[in-house]
Structures are given as C-alpha cells and as structure tokens.
Design a protein around this nucleic acid. Structure first.
Length: 200
DNA sequence: TCTAGGATCGGCT
DNA sequence: GCCGATCCTAGAT
C-alpha cells in the first residue's frame, strides 16, 4: 500500500505555514516502531504562525529548550507534552529562524488499524480513535522522545507521504483554533482546517 | 526553588 | 455540558 507513495521533500515544508497546513490535508503520516507500521491520512490541522501569533509557543520570539525544534529547519517533528498527560505532534514549517508549525489534530487510519486499536484501547469507537491531537500521538506511539525526528528522511521512523490523492478546496472548512482563548483576537483567526467528506 | 497554568481527554451528571 | 487528572514548562522569587 505504501509502495505507491512518495515521501514529501523538504521543499514542501519550506513554504508559508497556512499553505503547508492546507496541503497536509489528505497526506499520509507513516510511523514505524519495531515491526509495527501505522499509517494515518491527515484530516484536521491547525496553523501556528510563529513570533507574531499570540497562540504560538514562540510568540514574541520566545525561545526555550522545549521550543528549540521549532526554531530549526522545516520538515522536522515538534512533539511536546500538554496538561501533563497528552502529547501533541507538530510539523515545523518555513525555515530556520522562523519558528512556525502545523499541529496535526486528527486523521483516519489507512494501515495498522489493529495496532491503533490496541494502543488506544480495544473498546474505543472507530470515530474516536484519532479525533484529537493527544489521541493521534497515542495511536502513533509518539512522545517527547520523538521530538526532532526528520519527516523527509525515507529511512526515518516517522515520515509524511503523498499517494497523489487529496481534498478539494470546497471540502475544507476553516474554523477558529481550539483551546487558545487566552490569545485574544488571534483565537478567532480561521487557522484550523478540517475535512468532513471523502477523498478526491 | 516555588508556583501557576496549559494547542486535552474521558468519565460523569 | 462540566470537571478532574497529572506533570512539565516557564517565569518569578
């Protein structure tokens, strides 16, 4: 199934964050750990626009050990812990010195469904498996240990691939981001992208 | 050191 | 719809 896919090149990520966010919808996140392979098609993302975005971890030029990955080159994974319990997976965009990223909020399983169910809990309903950033990370077995992985290295245990399919603009909903009320008017910026209907 | 708070989730009412 | 869990992170002292 993954034989007909290609790993997205660095250049894919070295573009404006809002563009990368839109283009990530429909792409396939592939996670290898040991003999387990899990693949998830991205259906929900949020853009975080760096130093000028009050909702972003790097707002105002903030640079800390946690956010160091965001300050580096595009195409790397920024994984952090939230609420002491859950992890969130981000894709670093633009380029070195422009600490912007796209948060992967949700997807649908395309391979490794049984592994996902095992990790998420056997009784969990199909639609609840991957509909949140914390759930996605649990399904992909991602923790802070995976922070800084390179999405562009075909031998990496975490890559993003294209199978040539995607979603039409008419299928994409643009909504305010979740859980960033503290960010003032930026909380209303329509930087959350979701798709509801099927592939094209 | 100490403290407050968070890009969430799931259980309970 | 509400609320507690749980602990890292960052900023203050």
């Amino acid at each position: 199934m993954l034989a007909e896919t290609t790993v997205l090149p660095r250049g894919f990520y070295q573009r404006p964050t809002a563009v990368v966010a839109r283009e990530l919808l429909g792409k396939i996140l592939v996670r290898r750990s040991g003999d387990d392979v899990v693949a998830v098609r991205v259906t929900e993302v949020e853009a975080y626009l760096g130093v000028d975005d009050p909702a972003c971890h790097t707002y105002g030029g903030k640079r800390t050990p946690r956010t160091e990955t965001m300050w580096g080159p595009a195409g790397f994974a920024y994984v952090y812990l939230i609420y002491g319990i859950h992890h969130c997976l981000n894709v670093v965009t633009v380029g070195e010195g422009s600490p912007e990223a796209v948060l992967i909020r949700g997807g649908s399983a395309v391979a490794g469904g049984s592994i996902i169910r095992r990790r998420r809990g056997v009784g969990v309903a199909r639609r609840d498996l991957l509909d949140g950033p914390g759930k996605l990370c649990q399904a992909l077995a991602l923790t802070r240990l995976e922070n800084g992985l390179d999405f562009c290295d075909p031998t990496s245990c975490l890559t993003i691939r294209s199978d040539g399919r995607g979603f039409l603009d008419g299928q994409v909903e643009r909504l305010p981001r979740v859980g960033v009320d503290y960010a003032g008017e930026a909380a209303a910026w329509p930087l959350r992208l979701t798709v509801s209907s099927g592939l094209r």
